[in-house]
Amino acid sequence: MSPAQQQAASLAWQHAHPLLMVLISTAITLIVVTLIVLIRWLVSQSAWRYHPDGASGFLKDEFVRWGAILVPYLALSIGFKVFVYDLHPEYNKPEVWMGFAVVAIAFRLFLRRLPFVKAMGRHIDAAKAQAKAEAKAMRAAR
């Protein structure tokens, strides 16, 4: 099968199963975000005790911070994918996806600046800074 035939077969499958395409990409996004949050939480284990609510508060802040940024982005993404895969398959072109990428990045940057997201980030950053300062003091004491 030539590359052109493979691309045509792929597009035909996407057009035949638009909601499955949305479901697959949504599931992948949720899995990736969950893994990012869990890895960030586990890597920051030394900072847990400096967080006002401990390890569970640190995890909650990570999920809220990333969730507040990525859940609205995910909703925007789902809406766009339904539009492209189900309603207007003729727009399934690289230039349309690039336009979506620019809008999505701008949307994410805007959401990152929300006051409650910034507050969660300050809690996390303060706990990490305290853990780092303690580790530095312990090294200096040796």
Rank of each mutant, 00 (worst) to 15 (best):
P3H: 15
Q5L: 13
Q5W: 07
Q7R: 12
A8D: 13
A8S: 14
A8E: 15
S10Q: 12
S10F: 13
L11C: 05
Q14F: 10
H15M: 10
H15S: 14
A16R: 10
A16P: 06
A16S: 11
H17Q: 08
P18T: 00
L19F: 10
L19N: 03
L20T: 15
L20E: 13
M21K: 07
V22G: 10
V22L: 05
I24P: 02
S25E: 09
T26Q: 02
A27P: 08
T29Y: 05
L30H: 05
L30C: 10
L30T: 05
L30F: 03
I31F: 04
L35E: 00
L35D: 00
I36V: 14
L38F: 05
L38P: 04
W41S: 07
L42I: 07
V43R: 12
V43M: 08
A47F: 01
W48L: 01
R49H: 08
R49E: 08
Y50N: 05
Y50T: 03
H51R: 02
P52E: 05
D53C: 08
G54K: 06
G54E: 02
A55P: 10
G57F: 01
G57Y: 00
L59E: 02
L59C: 03
K60Y: 12
D61R: 03
E62L: 13
E62D: 11
F63W: 09
V64E: 09
R65C: 06
R65A: 11
W66L: 07
G67H: 01
G67I: 00
G67Q: 02
A68S: 15
I69T: 09
I69R: 11
L70I: 10
V71M: 06
P72G: 03
Y73M: 12
L74H: 07
L74C: 12
A75R: 00
L76F: 13
L76T: 09
I78A: 13
G79F: 04
F80R: 04
K81T: 11
K81D: 12
V82M: 02
V82C: 03
F83H: 09
V84Y: 04
V84D: 06
V84A: 12
Y85Q: 04
D86Q: 14
H88N: 08
H88K: 12
H88R: 12
H88F: 14
E90H: 07
Y91S: 07
Y91P: 06
N92L: 14
N92A: 15
K93S: 08
E95N: 14
W97T: 14
M98T: 13
G99D: 04
A101S: 14
V102M: 11
V102E: 04
V103E: 03
A104Y: 02
I105T: 14
I105L: 14
I105H: 03
I105C: 08
A106R: 05
F107N: 01
L109A: 15
L109Q: 13
F110G: 14
L111R: 08
R113K: 13
R113G: 15
V117K: 05
V117N: 07
A119Q: 09
A119C: 01
A119T: 06
M120F: 11
G121W: 02
I124C: 04
A126K: 10
A127F: 01
K128W: 02
K128G: 06
A131F: 01
K132S: 08
K132T: 10
E134A: 11
E134F: 04
E134K: 10
K136C: 02
K136T: 15
K136G: 04
M138R: 15
R139P: 00
R139I: 00
A141Q: 12
A141R: 13
A141V: 05
R142F: 12
